[in-house]
Nucleic acid binder design. Structure first.
Lengths: 127, 127
DNA sequence: CCTTACCTTTACGCAAACGTAAACTTGGTA
DNA sequence: TACCAAGTTTACGTTTGCGTAAAGGTAAGG
């Protein structure tokens, strides 16, 4: 076990390779996401310590990647979640962003339905 | 109108810029897909002539792109559609491929549902 | 024949997203 | 205390997916 000595449960901590292994990526990738300001773990000395919250961020990043977003786009989206709870001044701008995002996702969902049907037909053709 | 003189209807032909305009991409991209063996239009002299079938291929390519596949992956998928109607010898191998493809798509669909819900919540937060 | 609009190939350029090697620090274990 | 696995930074290399000239061929109209 790594990074688990004696701390309040549910406030888990992770090393970079903990997360790398869990999500099947390299440490290099995770550091790269940090370079690109997508995640910013605590430092204990020089070592990176990832919180449960950081882990969730990483999940969001990977989900975004699976959906074909660029890291820059993913950062935009993630930043939406981190509104200081009071800064709704730019709400209108954000709504537009969200709208666009949703349109793209709905298109993707259509694309997926299409492909699934076509794969199904292909499979039947192969009997 | 371009590339439309007097030919049997439903056997339409398209120039490269016809398709580029229709799908909102550049001719350069289409030629690039050809370089990568994703599409292979007829040549009339030196000019490319795209059939209705080619058009469909291009649609498949773009759909694949929207889904985040690489051109190489898209070629694999497209090649599945072009089985010489008799070569089901490797059917088993193909079924595996299809299975994997479907799993990835189902995962993506989940991802999209996730994101759509979260975007919905975000939007409500901004009232 | 000349212009104009569109097509062609060739080839170098570039940003994104890491891979990879080098060279060093750190913290737990023998 | 000496060691070793795992962490760190720095920096250059690689692949993918086109962009973007450069330099010219082609087809139709005037």
């Amino acid at each position: 076990m790594s990074g688990q000595t004696a701390q309040s449960i549910s406030e888990k901590e992770y090393t970079i390779s903990d997360l790398a292994k869990e999500f099947g990526i390299t440490s290099r990738s995770i550091r790269h996401y940090e370079d690109e300001k997508l995640i910013c773990p605590e430092r204990r000395g020089v070592h990176r310590i990832y919180s449960a919250r950081d882990r969730v961020r990483l999940q969001l990043i990977l989900r975004g990647k699976r959906l074909g977003f660029s890291l820059a786009q993913i950062r935009e989206i993630i930043d939406l979640y981190d509104l200081p709870e009071g800064k709704q001044k730019q709400a209108k701008l954000l709504i537009e962003l969200i709208q666009k995002r949703r349109d793209a996702l709905l298109q993707q969902r259509k694309d997926i339905e299409h492909m699934l049907k076509e794969l199904e037909m292909l499979e039947q053709k192969l009997d």
